[in-house]
């Protein structure tokens, strides 16, 4: 594969920015590190979400399900396996689960997929809760020596991995096929693209990454319960951040994650009961004001500047 100068520039810039971000734990207070973890967490989730939902326009609400599965992988596995095995293992489980979900629903219209993924987290949560009632256990303790900074670095590494993977997919035949599917599925099918297989393959990416993220974050919770690991709010927040930023570009979701995280923190600190209202308003803003997200705004502005320069 041949890389242009612009490609190298992009790669180098991303690496430098990640390097700068990696210095955060060395410089700041615990509060900012917590914010940093939150931002890195949602960056991984929202970017991998957008990899699938951007080109295909399927809205997945399964993030919480995969995340919870990852959390439980660490929770159940930590006593038997060394920690470093667990996130990759969670990734495999997440990808397998995503493949199953994809096989069941991705042949059908988008509405079925939304409902299916919306129910998935609740379904797994009820099963685990029931399993706990039957076996008489409550939550699980995850006691490790992993600190907030370690989690932060792992998440940054994951973010880098998501970007790299997204960039590679964009350049591959799969990425090309997905763009055609996104434009017109009928056309894609007629030109010999196996649409269902392409969608299932791609859906495994957010599944795996959300599960790995859950596995990485488990030590932070210390005590894991179903209601905590499978919180449905997570799925919605990820959707909003990704769409707010814009799914058309690889860097789009981050642009949504950062402001929304601060907004969310601000609202939960001042009026904690109104975060639901904030979510609702954010959805409406996305549909009516920012259908292409911040990315759309930025690109419109850039186009306007270019045009102005052209005429001058």
């Amino acid at each position: 594969m041949r890389l242009t100068a612009k490609n190298w520039q992009g790669l180098a810039l991303t690496a430098v920015l990640l390097g700068v971000a990696a210095c955060l734990p060395l410089l700041t207070t615990a509060y900012w590190l917590t914010i940093g973890v939150t931002i890195a967490l949602y960056t991984v989730l929202a970017t991998s979400w957008a990899l699938f939902s951007g080109p295909t326009h399927y809205i997945s609400l399964a993030t919480a399900a995969f995340f919870g599965v990852g959390t439980y992988t660490t929770g159940l596995g930590i006593e038997h396996l060394p920690y470093w095995v667990l996130p990759p293992l969670a990734g495999l489980i997440g990808a397998a689960l995503a493949a199953l979900v994809g096989l069941a629903t991705l042949r059908l219209s988008g509405v079925y997929f939304v409902i299916f993924t919306l129910g998935l987290a609740e379904f797994i949560r009820q099963i685990i809760t029931w399993g706990q009632t039957v076996s008489g256990t409550k939550g699980i303790y995850v006691l490790t020596s992993i600190t907030e900074a370690h989690i932060y670095w792992q998440l940054l590494g994951l973010a880098g991995l998501v970007w790299l993977l997204g960039w590679l997919i964009g350049r591959s035949r799969l990425g090309f096929a997905l763009r055609i599917i996104g434009d017109d599925e009928e056309v894609a099918r007629h030109s010999g693209i196996h649409t269902a297989r392409a969608k299932v393959l791609l859906f495994m990416v957010p599944g795996a990454f959300a599960a790995i993220t859950g596995a990485v974050l488990a030590p932070r919770y210390v005590y894991i319960e179903p209601i905590l690991a499978f919180t449905p709010m997570l799925s919605f927040q990820v959707v909003i951040m990704a769409l707010l930023g814009g799914t058309g570009r690889l860097w789009g979701p981050v642009v949504g994650v950062i402001p929304f995280t601060f907004l969310w923190e601000g609202i939960s600190a001042s009026v904690p009961n109104q975060t639901t209202l904030l979510l609702g308003v954010a959805f409406l803003v996305i549909v009516y004001v920012l259908p292409r997200g911040f990315v759309g705004l930025i690109e419109d502005a850039r186009a306007r500047v270019n045009r102005a320069e052209g005429y001058a």
């Binding site: 219209s109 769409l243 109104q274 639901t276 209202l277 979510l279 609702g280 009516y288």
Partner: peptide, 21 residues
Amino acid sequence: EVDAILTTFGLSFVAVGIMLA
């Protein structure tokens, strides 16, 4: 379908928020 799903999700959260308040 996508727009309707996002909008009605938004409305549903707004409704929950208002009812909570």
